[in-house]
């Protein structure tokens, strides 16, 4: 089995790096504690975290679709 090819299902280092970056954005440690400012009815930290999550969804979908199985 090929251990490095993305087509074999292994995840490469740059993909891991992107996921770590997105994880750091999803968890709102960077947002001031006690801040409850609202935007569109949601606390702003919620919108920041959801935006990062949406980027994660797009990146994941792109990763899934960039390679196709041999019979497809």
């Amino acid at each position: 089995m090929n251990k490095t090819s993305s087509k074999s299902g292994a995840i490469s280092y740059w993909v891991l790096a992107v996921y770590f970056l997105l994880l750091a954005l999803i968890i709102p440690w960077y947002w001031p504690e006690g801040d409850a400012r609202l935007l569109f009815g949601f606390p702003m930290w919620v919108l920041a975290s959801l935006s990062a999550l949406f980027l994660t969804s797009c990146f994941t979908a792109w990763l899934c679709l960039r390679d196709k199985g041999p019979e497809d």
Binding site: L50, L53, F54, T56, S57, C58, T60, A61, W62, C64, L65, D67, K68, G69, P70, E71, D72
Partner: peptide, 21 residues
């Protein structure tokens, strides 16, 4: 096939927004 699985997971990546959210 793997391709069908990849397509399904690509769709699943957006489902949290229209369900658990």
């Amino acid at each position: 096939s793997v391709g069908k699985l990849r397509q399904s997971f690509a769709m699943m990546a957006f489902m949290p927004f229209v369900s658990v959210l």
